[in-house]
């Protein structure tokens, strides 16, 4: 196979490529933050006028909370804020398909490029 010679990329286009990549990075990382999508499946089970008993803390636990300066009122928001583990099947299926599709494309396209690399490296003299 003939040796592949890549074209020269003008400096402006190099800058443009970097800008695209940085924009994509920011979009991927920032957007879910901006939309508040992270860690939303928590639910505060409110108790009015909480006491250590109502929060189901034994005397040892109470002693440790108090050493760190907590009162039943301040501990309430921590103790009663509980995870809700329900599986949203539609979301799970979408995630699985996206993940699988990604890996399949990744390995297939990589293999095609890899064959070129091996061909040029070992078969062209």
């Amino acid at each position: 196979m003939a040796k592949y010679n890549p074209p020269d990329q003008p400096i402006v286009m190099q800058l443009f490529d970097i800008a695209c990549l940085v924009a994509a990075i920011f979009l991927a990382l920032w957007f879910p933050l901006y939309m508040g999508w992270a860690g939303i499946s928590k639910n505060l089970e409110k108790i009015d006028n909480p006491t250590w008993d109502a929060l189901k803390q034994n005397p040892t636990m109470v002693a440790q909370w108090e050493k760190l300066g907590f009162t039943p009122e301040t501990a309430h928001a921590i103790i009663q804020n509980k995870w809700v583990y329900t599986i949203d099947w539609t979301q799970l299926i979408i995630m699985t398909v996206v993940l699988l599709g990604y890996f399949i494309f990744l390995f297939m396209a990589s293999d095609r490029e890899y064959r070129d690399v091996i061909d040029e490296k070992f078969n062209s003299k």
């Binding site: 583990y85 979408i94 996206v98 990604y102």
Partner: peptide, 13 residues
């Protein structure tokens, strides 16, 4: 479980 949308968004990226 908790961060599914972020995971999907990241893979889409």
């Amino acid at each position: 479980l908790g961060y599914g949308v972020q995971l999907t968004a990241m893979v889409v990226f």
